[in-house]
Each structure stands twice: as structure tokens, then as C-alpha cells.
């Protein structure tokens, strides 16, 4: 256990997430991954923009979208971005319990977002008969927004895995980079959502 002890000094360094080589590597690796994710989502955005008017007689973007639910979803995800900043703030102050608490709130907000999205898709399918197979617009819409929802779901699984796995360990130099990596990923999901609510919903409503 002496190995564990060496990773958990009495006083944590100022940046526990980047104090070890592994932490530095995780940090760089995640940014590399996010660069790739940017291109992945760009291809889905480009496809959506190219096909959004190919409705095949189905509802248009203006008829389909409702701003109220999208606004609620935006607020949920934006707030969860702030709560994960709070979690990282407590990580830097070496306060494990508060970090877990704020991460838990982040997760709950993420679940709230996902529930709204499932309701939204359910609403489109049952009220408008608008499905993945309705039109090119349908395919592009569900692929883009669904891929983002899938990222939220993946983030929630990731978050619960590291929260449960490290619940009894407390904060140390081994798991601090893991929490930090997750928080960066979570912010990126919010970045993608900013473009989705702007390009898909708001621009779809004015056009």
C-alpha cells in the first residue's frame, strides 16, 4: 500500500490533475480526442444543413420545433457545465466530498437533459409521425441530435463509473486526472449543444 500512499500526499499540489505524467498524458489525449470530435460533429452539422429542407412532404423545421423545451434543455446543460466547474474547484481545494456532491448534481442535470430529449423525440414521432425514416431531413436531424444525446448518455455512464469506483478511495493523484478529464469532456458536450440549439432549433425556427 506504500505505492498508494505516495500518490496521496498530505498536501496536494496546486494542480493535482496535471501533477503526474499520466495526468499530463490524459489531458493531452483528451484534447486530441476533442479535436477529432469537432470534425465528427462538423460532418453531421454539414449533412443536416444540406438536407434540412428535404422534408419529403413531412413537417418543416418551423412546424416541428418548439422553443420552450429546447430552452429548458439548454438551461439544464449549461447549468451542469457550471456545476462541473464547481466540482473541479473543490478538487483543487482537495475537498473530495464536495467534489462528489457537485459531480452528482452534474449527473442529475444531465439525466434531466436526456429525459427532455427522449420526450422530444417521442413527441415528434407520435404527434407528427416524424421518424428517422420519414425523409432525408429526418435522418439528418435524428443522427445529429441523437449523436449528441448519445454523448450525454456516455458521459453519464462515465461519470457514474468514476464516482462509484473512487467513492471509498478519496481524492489522490491517481484519480484526480480522471475527474478532470471527465469535466473537460462534459464541457465539450455543452459546446456542441450550443451549436445544436443555434443552428438546428433557432435557425430552423427563423428560416
Amino acid at each position: 500500500m506504500s505505492h498508494d500512499h505516495s500518490l496521496n500526499p498530505e498536501t496536494m499540489p496546486q494542480h493535482p490533475e496535471k501533477a503526474t505524467l499520466e495526468g499530463k498524458n490524459k489531458f493531452l489525449g483528451l484534447w486530441f480526442f476533442l479535436g477529432g470530435e469537432t470534425v465528427l460533429f462538423a460532418s453531421l452539422f454539414g449533412t443536416y444543413l444540406a438536407l434540412k429542407n428535404s422534408t419529403a412532404g413531412g413537417p418543416t423545421t418551423q412546424e416541428l420545433y418548439g422553443l420552450e423545451l429546447v430552452f429548458v434543455m439548454t438551461m439544464l446543460l449549461l447549468t451542469s457545465s457550471l456545476t462541473s466547474v464547481y466540482a473541479m474547484y473543490h478538487m483543487k481545494n482537495n475537498d473530495f466530498k464536495k467534489m462528489q456532491l457537485w459531480l452528482g448534481i452534474t449527473g442529475l442535470l444531465g439525466i434531466g437533459f436526456l429525459a427532455c430529449e427522449i420526450y422530444e423525440f417521442y413527441h415528434y414521432i407520435h404527434e407528427y409521425g416524424f421518424t428517422f425514416r420519414s425523409s432525408a431531413f429526418g435522418s439528418a436531424f435524428y443522427t445529429l441530435v441523437g449523436f449528441h444525446g448519445g454523448h450525454v448518455l456516455f458521459g453519464l455512464c462515465w461519470l457514474s463509473a468514476i464516482m462509484i469506483r473512487n467513492a471509498k478511495r478519496g481524492l489522490n493523484l491517481y484519480n484526480a486526472p480522471k475527474f478532470n478529464t471527465f469535466s473537460l469532456y462534459w464541457h465539450f458536450i455543452d459546446v456542441v449543444w450550443v451549436f445544436i440549439f443555434t443552428v438546428v432549433y433557432l435557425m430552423g425556427k427563423v428560416a
Partner: peptide
């Protein structure tokens, strides 16, 4: 990395 991604995007 992120600006490289943005460029390709």
C-alpha cells in the same frame, strides 16, 4: 489540437 479540429470542421 482544438484549432486543428476547428479548421477541418
Amino acid at each position: 489540437m482544438i484549432y486543428g479540429g476547428v479548421w477541418a470542421a
